[in-house]
């Protein structure tokens, strides 16, 4: 256990270093965005002076040292674009992404798995073929296109849902919750449609295999009802690959859904990162990448720790795999 935690700590340290280096490797800096550059009348000397105010004139290794020094104190610096502490900006945007992508991932898993099991139960029938074709067609559609179709139908034509944002600026209490739910409906639906396919196919394939297992045949032969056989005996055994896929997807939750957040002007982490790249907002990029990295590492850690609980074969196999 300690070894594993150490390994993850090392991965985090290396990832944090890469996160620091990547934004600095791209050409440009935030000064032009912030102050307008020579086009607006700043001279090169003034631009250099402004860069110095943001510490951009310091050697990269010194900036790297300052980055780690701040990191260990929980200080990720000040966002150049928003002129606020990075921690505050992330705290403002992270919950929206967690809510949006969390809800949509949960729905994708639930619907994809159940639909996959349903299709597997009817494997080879017309219904199965129709389900596979429908889900694959949805899976092949780009997220932004799904978003535009949903907006055109449900926001413009039917007027059921708002087309942008996460909430209105002055809503509060129950009205705020209603606002949030309404505004989340279309982006979440977009993500669900776009990501349903993976879970559906995994669930269907695993279920088809499990349904052929002797214990399923025996359960059927024992006269158990189809529903009980499917939900109590077959499905739990088919969930392992779905669970693996889910843990990987959970890591990606924090990186948000850039395209969907942009189309719906949703104030999540994905759009924040996209804007920060344009502005070359180094502190914000480093902070956001760090959050994403930590999310992915944690998801992997959770997967590592929980998989043996779900699959006893992993527990039993381990001693045999370890060197003497």
């Amino acid at each position: 256990m300690a070894l594993r935690v150490g390994q993850y700590a090392l991965v985090l340290a290396v990832a944090a270093t890469i996160n620091f280096a990547l934004p600095h490797l791209a050409p440009g800096d935030p000064i032009t965005y912030l102050y307008g550059g020579t086009e607006q009348g700043l001279t090169p000397a003034q631009i250099d002076e402004l860069g110095a105010q943001y510490g951009l004139d310091r050697p990269l290794i010194e900036q790297y040292g300052a980055f780690w020094s701040g990191l260990v104190q929980g200080d990720l610096g000040i966002s150049v674009e928003h002129r606020q502490p990075v921690v505050d900006v992330l705290a403002e945007h992270l919950p929206w992404t967690l809510a949006l992508v969390g809800v949509s991932t949960g729905l994708s898993v639930l619907l994809g798995t159940l639909l996959g099991a349903w299709a597997a139960w009817r494997w080879g029938t017309r219904r199965d073929t129709a389900a596979v074709l429908s889900v694959l067609a949805a899976d092949a559609m780009p997220g932004f296109w799904i978003a535009m179709v949903l907006i055109a139908v449900f926001a413009v034509q039917l007027g059921w849902f708002p087309s942008y944002g996460a909430t209105s600026i002055d809503a509060s209490g129950a009205a705020w919750l209603t606002e949030v739910a309404q505004r989340m409906a279309l982006p979440a639906a977009t993500l669900v449609i776009a990501s349903l396919g993976g879970f559906f196919l995994l669930s269907r394939a695993a279920m088809v295999t499990v349904l052929d297992e002797p214990f399923v045949r025996r359960a059927r032969a024992a006269g158990l009802r189809d529903r009980r056989v499917a939900l109590r005996h077959a499905l739990p055994n088919a969930l392992l690959p779905v669970y693996t896929n889910l843990t990987l997807a959970l890591g990606a939750v924090l990186s948000g859904a850039v395209v969907v957040e942009t189309v719906f002007a949703y104030p999540g982490l994905g759009r924040l990162i996209f804007d920060a790249v344009t502005v070359r907002d180094y502190p914000l990029l480093q902070g956001a990448f760090l959050v994403v990295t930590v999310g992915i590492v944690l998801a992997n850690l959770v997967a590592d720790l929980t998989y043996p609980l779900l699959d006893p074969r992993v527990r039993r196999a381990r001693p045999a795999l370890e060197p003497a």
Partner: peptide, 8 residues
Amino acid sequence: GSLASLNE
């Protein structure tokens, strides 16, 4: 972002 940097 890269295009904006050309200015300088």
